[in-house]
Simulated scan of single mutants.
Amino acid sequence: MPRFLEVQAPDHGVRLITLYRPEALNALCTELLAELANELSSADNDPQTLAVVITGNRKAFAAGADIAEMAERDLVGIFNDPRAAHWQRIAAFSKPLIAAVNGYALGGGCELAMCADIVIAGEEARFGQPEINLGIMPGAGGTQRLLRAVGKPLAMQMVLTGEAITARHALQAGLVSEVTQPELAVERAMQVGRSIATKAPLAVRLAKEALLKAGDTDLASGLRFERHAFTLLAGTADREEGIRAFQEKRPAQFKGC
């Protein structure tokens, strides 16, 4: 039974995972990260889960790493840190991952939000990488994903000053896709997830993979992957159903095959 997560069964194909460590503003201790990685692995293997929404609470999505835990590790401890493997498993989640962010998303919290494919932010959300204030730097994707998301100038400013940005600034910069009233962030994320869950699962999975290729490969390689994935989908029953449903002017009933 997860200790630091609250998990709801899939609702119309969408599983809701809530980080639950309120006394520490959902700071990402090793155990929490392990539980989250395990839960996402379970969701990946569950045919009833077609998308996942991850959220925190009104005050904090996640306010960073667990500093007390980090302070106990020396160079060797950081080198052998089990959290790196947990982060890799979280980033490898193959289904759509949507973050509903309210309050603080700082340090590891911002890095976790950037692992999501879509970020819905409440108006009061704040995003930042303040590690520089502790004499360190981001270590779970905060330099690489942030620069790819918002560009060099803003990423440099955020990482080198440690200053956070508002939800509206994050929207303008491309870090989030929508800004809502705080009380609507989770419901809007669930709506987006439920919309995705009505689509053909194989097409969603390959489309996500193709989009991610754009961030870590050259254009020619990305185009080859895209065309290969497009061709593979031509052999699926869902493609036939999608075209037939369009021609018959009815909702498609996709089966994931």
Rank of each mutant, 00 (worst) to 15 (best):
E226H: 09
C110F: 06
A37T: 03
L75A: 03
V176S: 10
G128T: 14
G135M: 01
I120D: 15
E124N: 02
G109L: 04
A9K: 09
R224K: 11
M158N: 05
L202Q: 00
D216C: 06
I17L: 08
E123S: 09
K249M: 15
L171G: 03
Q48C: 06
C110M: 10
A185D: 09
L232R: 09
L97N: 02
K208T: 15
F254T: 00
A34E: 05
A203R: 04
R89A: 02
Y20M: 06
Q172D: 12
K95V: 07
V186C: 12
D11R: 06
D117H: 07
F93T: 10
F93M: 07
L233N: 00
A155F: 06
L202W: 04
I196F: 03
S221A: 15
G108I: 08
I196W: 00
D44E: 05
G122L: 14
R15W: 00
A116M: 04
S94V: 14
G174L: 14
G256L: 07
C29L: 05
R168G: 08
T30P: 13
T55C: 13
G122K: 00
L219F: 08
L175P: 09
V119K: 05
G103V: 03
L233A: 01
L184E: 03
V150M: 00
A113V: 13
A92M: 00
A229N: 10
I78Q: 15
A62E: 06
K255R: 13
G77P: 09
E31V: 10
G122D: 13
G108M: 13
E23T: 07
K255M: 08
T143R: 01
K152G: 07
C257A: 07
Q129V: 14
S94R: 15
D66T: 03
P2R: 12
D46L: 12
R224L: 15
D11T: 10
E241V: 04
G13T: 03
N57C: 04
M70W: 02
T198M: 09
V76K: 04
G139R: 14
L16T: 05
A62P: 13
V179N: 01
M1K: 06
P96L: 05
R3E: 05
